[in-house]
Design a protein around this nucleic acid. Structure first.
Length: 451
RNA sequence: GACCCGUUCGUCUAUCGGUUAGGACUCCAGGUUUUCAUCCUGGCAAGAAGGGUUCGACUCCCUUACGGGUCGCCA
């Protein structure tokens, strides 16, 4: 078993990337972006994308966290060619199941006299020399390992017999014939350690690309609870996966053009590591929502209906509205979770409360409202016609410009100054209900003012 | 503290020595929409600081400042 050697000859023409999360929390947006870049790079070059679960820290691993990774990847559309649930020729893909492999590789270090015991643990003896890496994003970086105080020999095997991250990570990248390691910049200083291990193994190092971290809007380090941090929150808020992928790709990568809205396929087509930035980016939720809006706008009526319905059924089961009403939110909302509030006032059983003093006075001081509201309300309540047809007819027969009554109508009927496309919304609400609301408004404010 | 990486509008970014430093988000002002939103047009807003190199520097070099990362028997 000498994968390191054979790998050097057989695989370097083939792109193989991997995402190697540890299931100790939820899928973080930074991790998702790392996964995305690896996925994009593999897809772009016709390579293979591997998912490897680094679950060597038994104390911190949880089944929920592992599931969150799968769910998040699946939701984002980042399908893996090899890994859990999918198999492959380089498995197993859980590090917890690869102990025999690690034992074999560890024996090599023992045989080469590159490890020594220290307090029951085993340390890897670094070669004391400058180590230079050629990072695809950061360029050439040299760390001087002659400075031992800054680079103490690292533990590769714990006193309990388990192996640490650096060791298993390197072994697996070699074993799995990974060609490109794209990971967060927090691993930059780990790379010379990994390079030393690879050299000790006589293996060929993959190409490394360290991508900058993602920070909060205030430049603090992004962590749990921070808005946008957990990938699992995005479905619930009503993002389209393509929008999240698009936005996340833009954090730290640029197409170098003025285009910003991309489909998955377009990202695959345009992605390149050369265009990855070096400075950490801040997470701007406003822009994230704008990207979402753009992706929503790209949906046709049928697709919007399907996606919105699926979202509401799953995340807002208590909310019920006619499909036609939901369709009126198309082009209006940026996220699906805005839908209920957006159309709530147009539900048949909505409770209408007028609380905008400025608007109330504006509406009630309109002579046309004073003159026509009671009659219009009366007519609407009894007409067999469609509400809008009735309103148009009424306006025509009284020589009224309906356009000038849009705001009063909107506020009177919905108690809002903005909302869905007005006429279709009134039509959907129905003449009787609209008339009733107008009547109530008249009694409450117009007649009261006159009395 | 040591060692790395970084620094263009508030934010994401374009610029590979010569530009009125461009685009996007946000915000503001107009216009379209019989309303709301979309959309369109316009506007506000940037090269961290100081030294070099150069005919010329946001771009190359140095210093400082600031930001981030790493220095675990976590990953």
């Amino acid at each position: 078993m000498d994968a390191a050697v054979s790998g050097a000859y057989t695989t370097r023409m083939t792109v193989r990337t991997r995402f190697a999360p540890s299931p100790t929390g939820y899928l973080h947006v930074g991790g998702a972006r790392t996964a995305l870049f690896n996925w994009l790079f593999a897809r772009k070059h016709g390579g293979t994308f591997v998912l490897r679960v680094e679950d060597t820290d038994e104390a911190r691993n949880t089944d929920e966290a592992r599931q969150a990774i799968f769910d998040g990847m699946n939701w984002l559309g980042l399908d893996w060619d090899e890994g859990p649930q999918r198999g492959g020729n380089f498995g197993p893909y859980y590090q917890s199941e690869r102990t025999a492999i690690y034992d074999a590789w560890f024996a090599k270090l023992v045989a080469a006299d590159r490890v020594y015991e220290d307090g029951g643990a085993w340390r890897f003896r670094f070669e004391r020399k400058p180590i230079t890496m050629h990072d695809l994003v950061c360029g050439e970086v040299t760390i001087d390992y002659r400075d031992e105080s800054n680079t103490p020999d690292m533990v590769v095997k714990r006193s309990d017999g388990s192996y640490v991250f650096h060791f298993v990570n390197v072994v697996d990248d070699l074993e799995m014939e990974i060609s490109h390691v794209i990971r967060g910049e927090d691993h930059l200083m780990n790379t010379p350690k990994h390079l030393q291990l690879i050299e000790a193994f006589g293996g060929k190092a993959p190409q490394y690309a360290h991508i900058p971290l993602i920070l909060n809007a205030d430049a603090s380090k992004m962590s749990k609870r921070d808005a946008g941090a957990a990938v699992g929150d995005y479905p619930r808020q009503g993002f389209l996966p393509s929008a999240v992928v698009n936005f996340v790709a833009l954090l730290g990568w640029s197409s170098k053009t003025d285009e910003e809205i991309f489909t998955m396929d377009q990202l695959v087509d345009r992605f390149s590591l050369e265009n990855v930035n070096r400075a950490p980016g801040r997470f701007d939720f406003e822009k994230c929502k704008w990207v979402s809006q753009q992706h929503l706008a790209a949906l046709d009526d049928a697709a919007y209906h399907d996606a919105a319905s699926a979202y509401l059924a799953h995340y807002q089961p208590e909310f019920h509205a006619r499909p036609e009403l939901i369709q009126l939110t198309r082009g209006k909302v940026r996220l699906f979770n805005e839908i209920p509030d957006y159309v709530r006032q147009w539900l048949p059983d909505a409770v209408i409360g007028y609380d905008d003093a400025e608007l109330i006075s504006k509406v009630t001081s309109n002579p046309l409202v004073i003159e026509h509201w009671p009659a219009m309300a009366e007519g609407l309540k009894s007409t067999p016609m469609d509400a809008v047809d009735f309103l148009k007819q009424y306006a025509e027969s009284h020589s009224l410009n309906l356009g000038k009554l849009m705001l009063p109508l909107r506020y009177t009927i919905s108690a809002q100054k903005s909302g869905p496309d007005l006429l279709p919304a009134i039509s959907l609400l129905g003449a009787a209900a609209a008339g009733e609301r107008m009547e109530n408004f008249s009694k409450q404010f117009i007649q009261a003012a006159q009395a």
